[in-house]
Design a protein around this nucleic acid. Structure first.
Lengths: 210, 210, 210, 210
DNA sequence: AATGAATGAGCCTTCATTCAT
DNA sequence: GATGAATGAAGGCTCATTCAT
């Protein structure tokens, strides 16, 4: 609570506060004043550390990517392709449901998808591409080399969009549709469901076009 | 340009304009002035006809829900359960990709999901429930009476969330992942993919728990 | 004092108030709030009528040019070239010392010269050119066709810059140097002085280069 | 980059930087942060060394006035009165067009004239008076003892205001009116022009009132 | 019944200044 | 003695809303 601190610390507090507020409200609706208040700093702090709201937003993405990316991809994936797909889905869901940087980032991501700010350009594809590549390879292994590329891509979409339900899990119809509240056990069940459901789906469409 | 129209007509134009703008920008980012301009009405028109922005938003939802196109949604379903599921998916996608009231409503719906305004309470469940009921019945028929209710609900989510990718089709990663732009032929392909993928998935998880 | 007036009236009041404040303080130091207060309007009035401060500034120039220009050039100039020069100088000084639109414009002009805003581009040369042309022709007549063009242009500058002292007459060293306060009689004396001084000057340099 | 310089040195760098920035932008538009950056000092340096922006401004004037280049201005004038006038005009113009302290000071002076800060009271007259005195004596010699004092003062104004065109030489109409860019040769030509033009003017008005 | 005029509250940003070290 | 951190006050702009006609 020292009055004049390291400076990097206040900056970090602002970054985290901004991450939360942007994730909750979206870029436009997020108020600089709210961010500062949540970080325990003055209104002018955002300008002091980041220049303006736009730059702050970009830095929040940068920060989120740098920190979230770490947890994102199990490099040591092993086992059969089926096992790897299960692992992938688990990771994806964990990513979407996580608290802290990772979960927040997922929400940030959806916000940007629904209400594009046009402020993050590069970071966007840097985020998507490696995830997509990974999933693509797994699916290719499961379906076999004979399948159309489009078939695989459609499977990617089916899987990613099933997992994405977790992004909107709050305030959404997910809980309503399941008739119960979300808890870790249910999340596990969902992950298994998506894996089973998808593996069958993949095989089915793989046969049709392979 | 008539100075004295019916009065109800201006009101309707405002309602439509508001639907468009809210769907495009979301509640907060939508500007009353824009809505009025698009409706060819005065700045004060919104407040004159609807009291304020919030009431206008509620009326837009009400209007959308009362709209026959949305409400009568897949009444005429017939054939085997598999066929009815295909029809359902097609309807859902058509709904999401349609222009005019229907597609706009879908976007409104997503906007509300991501950025809840807390203004529409009742209308929300009125929308979801009948759709869900319908899908539930179809799935129950396919899976059989022995299955857990939760299993069916998970399948509902899998299907709905696959279809939901169309809502964010613009500015999203869908086109990026498919490596091509969306056109009617591709939408058809996607619908078939989701149906095939899901039917296989349903059967698989049905067996596991049934 | 009607609460809701013509609208053009408030706009005009803003335009005049802005003219005064910009002339007194310069573009940057002029406060929108001050302008509005002086015009008896709300802070948002500037945005309502002119969009923003910059546009207001441009409109003030436009307005000043349209109104000042009327009084600016005696089209019916007659008499010998010497007489026309005297007339020109009188006009110029009257222009610089006038109250209301004309005098204010001169100050605006000087402000722009010292602290260019880069906002008025076109209006600038439109202002200068006709004045310059007129003086140029008079001087050419006095000096004779044999003189270098540069010589004439130097005489233009000598005259214009002598007259320009009136622009800075307040807060300046003019009163201090003259040892007395400015009054209409003194202005007359100054005009005669500048005319006599300049006519002799013109003839002298005309001989040298002619 | 030394952490421990004399301390006086930083102060001096600030003074010079401030002189430049104030001259370029005027008091209000000059930013403390800019001044500090240009001086290679910390944002807090101005307040540390000078208390606040106002005091810094006053010290800049004081510094400029105390500066030998400005104060010793045309001490060594000799020759006939005509020659001394030519010298005076040359000095004045050199002063206005000079780079470094002197030219900067001229601009500071004009800024203050157009946009009085009310901060320099005393220094103001200290600047004007000795210059004026000098010119006055020269003119008195040329015109002769019989002339009205007012006549001489009017001539002073004519000369000073002709020379003053150099202060606003950038961004002004001077280049536009001359139809060419300013270079040392042209400045020389202008100095000669003003001298010739003025000498003739002086003699003419001297005769009229003498 | 309908509208152009006008406003107030709130937001982002700037900047001189202060403070703790 | 000097500085990076932090702040408060104020300015420009946006926008939903209100008012008089």
């Amino acid at each position: 609570m020292a009055k004049r601190e390291d400076g990097k610390e206040t900056r970090l507090r602002l970054l985290n506060a901004a991450g939360e507020v942007f994730a909750e409200k979206g870029y436009r609706a997020a108020k600089v004043a709210d961010i500062c208040k949540r970080a325990g700093a003055n209104v002018a702090a955002v300008n002091y550390y980041f220049g303006n709201k736009k730059s702050l937003y970009r830095e929040v993405w940068q920060h989120a990517l740098e920190n979230a990316e770490v947890a994102l991809f199990f490099e040591s994936a092993a086992g059969s392709s089926q096992d790897r797909l299960r692992q992938y889905i688990h990771e994806l869901i964990k990513n979407f449901t996580a608290t802290g940087n990772v979960g927040r980032f997922s929400r940030l991501y959806l916000m940007e998808m629904v209400n594009p700010t046009g402020l993050i350009q590069g970071a966007w594809h840097e985020t998507i591409e490696p995830r997509r590549r990974k999933l693509h390879d797994i699916l290719r292994n499961i379906i076999g080399p004979g399948a159309e590329d489009l078939t695989i891509r459609l499977c990617e979409l089916s899987i990613v969009n099933q997992c994405r339900m977790f992004v909107t899990i709050k305030h959404s119809d997910v809980e309503y549709m399941l008739g119960r509240t979300i808890d870790p056990k249910l999340i596990d069940r969902l992950a298994r469901h998506i894996a089973d459901f998808s593996l069958a789906g993949i095989r089915a469409v793989g046969k049709l076009t392979g």
